[in-house]
Amino acid sequence: MATSKKEQRLRRARQTRARIALQGAVRLTVFRTNLHIYASVISGDGSTVLASASTAEKEVREQLKETGSNVAAATLIGKRIAEKAKAAGVEKVAFDRAGYQYHGRVKALAEAAREAGLQF
C-alpha cells in the first residue's frame, strides 16, 4: 500500500499528539508550507488556541521584506509566539512538530521560542 508523504507526516503527527494529550499539556504546534511558517499554542484539552503567530501576518511580512520560508523568518516567529504565549500566561508547553523533522525551520522556531523564555 503506497502512502503519500503527507499521509506519513500526519500519521507521525497523530502519534505525537496522542502522547501529548495523555500528559494534558499545553502544546506549541508548528505548520509549514513552502511560503510560510505558522505556530500556535493550543490548550491542554485541544479546544482553544491561546496564541498564534505566522509569517503571513502583515507586520511580520513588513519586518521580513522577503519570503517567510527561511530560517530567519522561523526564528522571528519563534520569538513572537513565545512573547504571545507569555502574555497569555503560558510558560511551559509540549512541542508538537506535527510530524516534521526537527531540522531547519522547525528547529529554528523551537530554539528561538526556548531562548525567548518558553519551556519545553
Rank of each mutant, 00 (worst) to 15 (best):
A73N: 00
A112F: 01
A110C: 12
K79T: 15
R12T: 05
L10V: 09
E66K: 15
D45Y: 10
F95A: 01
A116M: 06
L22D: 14
S43T: 01
E111F: 13
V71M: 09
I20Q: 04
R80I: 12
A82E: 07
T29D: 01
G44A: 08
R97D: 00
A116G: 06
Q119Y: 15
V30A: 03
R27F: 10
A39S: 10
T3S: 12
V90L: 02
R32Y: 01
E59V: 14
S4Y: 11
G117F: 04
A85S: 01
L109M: 05
F31P: 05
A87R: 15
G99I: 03
F95W: 08
A94C: 04
F95T: 08
V26P: 11
T33L: 03
R61G: 03
R12D: 08
R61L: 05
N70I: 05
T75L: 06
R97H: 00
L10R: 11
T29G: 00
S52T: 13
R114V: 08
T67V: 07
E83W: 10
D96C: 07
V26S: 05
L28M: 11
L35D: 15
S47K: 15
F120C: 15
A82L: 09
T55W: 09
K79P: 04
K6Y: 14
L22N: 09
D45A: 07
I42Q: 02
G78F: 11
R97S: 06
G104L: 04
G24E: 08
Q15N: 11
F120S: 15
V90P: 08
A98N: 12
A110I: 01
A73F: 11
A39Q: 10
K58R: 13
T3A: 10
K84F: 12
L50N: 02
V26A: 09
I37R: 02
T3K: 13
R27H: 11
A87V: 10
K5D: 13
L50C: 06
I77M: 02
G44T: 08
L118M: 05
R80V: 05
A74C: 11
A112S: 14
Y38F: 15
R17A: 04
V71L: 13
A2K: 15
Q8A: 15
Y100V: 11
L118A: 01
L28Y: 01
A53C: 08
A13W: 11
A88G: 05
E111P: 05
E83H: 08
S54C: 04
Q8L: 15
T33N: 01
A108R: 03
I42T: 00
G44R: 02
V60N: 00
A72C: 13
M1Y: 14
R11I: 11
E59R: 10
G78S: 07
A18R: 08
L22R: 14
A73Q: 03
G68A: 06
I77L: 01
V26W: 03
G104S: 00
F31T: 09
F95E: 07
K86D: 00
Y102Q: 07
A88H: 04
V60A: 01
A110P: 03
